[in-house]
Design a protein around this nucleic acid. Sequence first.
DNA 1: GATATGGGTTGATCTGGATCAAATGCGGGC
DNA 2: GCCCGCATTTGATCCAGATCAACCCATATC
Lengths: 265, 265
Amino acid sequence: MNRAAATIARRDASPASADWPGDVLARADKARVRTRSCAQCDLGSLAFCDGFAPRTVSSIRRVQCTVQHDAHDTLFREGDEGAAVYSVLSGAIKVYKLMPDGRRQITGFFFRGDMFGFCLDGSYAYTAEAITPIEVCRLPMQRLNDLSETAPEVQHRIMLRMTAKLAQFHNHVLLLGRKTARERVATFLLSLSDRARRRGDPPSPLALPMGRADIADYIGLTVETVSRTMTAFKRDGLIDLPTPNHIDICRAEALRAVSDGTARG
Amino acid sequence: MNRAAATIARRDASPASADWPGDVLARADKARVRTRSCAQCDLGSLAFCDGFAPRTVSSIRRVQCTVQHDAHDTLFREGDEGAAVYSVLSGAIKVYKLMPDGRRQITGFFFRGDMFGFCLDGSYAYTAEAITPIEVCRLPMQRLNDLSETAPEVQHRIMLRMTAKLAQFHNHVLLLGRKTARERVATFLLSLSDRARRRGDPPSPLALPMGRADIADYIGLTVETVSRTMTAFKRDGLIDLPTPNHIDICRAEALRAVSDGTARG
DNA sequence: GATATGGGTTGATCTGGATCAAATGCGGGC
DNA sequence: GCCCGCATTTGATCCAGATCAACCCATATC
């Protein structure tokens, strides 16, 4: 489609090394780069570099840059040269793959503290797009690799993140391959709630920054089925929906039973 | 079910450090451990350690052990302490997750040269089972981590494998979330064929070591649908099925078009 | 050669979720 | 306050793939 054509045009216009702010501006829609270091980073224990030796941290600071995006901005597209990994400071991001006829599969949502963009060589396997206004910490992969010669803990930390992501994928593949609509929605809500809790965000009322269409494209359903299922959960008293974008999980155990297929019988 | 109960009993009987052959025997069904080193390894460029400095290779050799299993043996179960990664020397392995009611999702097939079992801390997220008689190279993860202090290329190589696996997962999630039965089967066959080619196995007739039920549980369909779809492909001249476990891809481009949804219109 | 066994295939029917269609609700601009 | 545009919800119908049920056909056993 014309979106794909636009991507190619942009890529041809900005070739080569993709490590520095100027390139970020050329490559991504409307990015605003702040050149200040990560001294003001408030991720705390969620930060990728938390607990590293001071000299390792300062090495990372030298190669890192903080980037802001508006909602709906594209950070990179499937097929772009994969040059950097990102750590989310604030906001929500979705990554997805498209089929030629426009079918879309969202393969991940990322929030404060999450990392995405792993792509050691070759090109990104998916497109990344801001759901809300976001702030991300951009880490050129090549620089991290260089760094790992002297600081093996950097790669080890990356491996931990990737391992966690792999485990998540196993669960998501189970959801997509074998779960019913009710089980999918329940699993999704519990997983979001769990992640909110882990990163210290209020788990109730849980914020749903993404729309119903995004949820549907993530769990392999249609908007209508997602909506109907949430309404059914509300009717059954499992959740409350103060607004379409906030849910209260009223009966977590019951929702858990739905999510793993042990509800009722 | 009683299988789960048996797992717990076995784990209670063999606690603690899981690095050495004796433990492998205790943990896995009927494993035969060969204590000879990997000097006879014939993986060549497919090997995890291919191209490493001689002293790194010999460090790996010291911690590695080669294990043989019969078809249907279980290497480890979901929830077992994740102590080692495996590299396949020969044969085929499937890994899967089960739901309490018995629904099964196979999350990966592994062949000669593939690695699986990534699990830096905590426990395995899935069960691994031999499809055919197999021979695997077992690498205790903790030892690899220690090694990476002096040889950063070890972790880098692991990261490459994990990155490739992540990209594969993105594709598989797209398949499960958004593809039709025909698209799924076509994608599956092409992916197997591609992997056979990459590892130097005859791409035609392509061997299908797994049964229809395994294929179905991998691509989120039923046995009947897999069988019907393969029959339809044969009728349409896209493939031939000399035996149920061997396929010839007759019209790869046409199958490719089916797999990405661009067939006919 | 009869007989069991366990894949794999084929046929008939059913159904969960998709699709098509229409409200409904809600935030933002003026 | 009122209108517009968009996301969400609700309703009616349809259909791809699941389910239920034979059946086929190799291999194994005696």
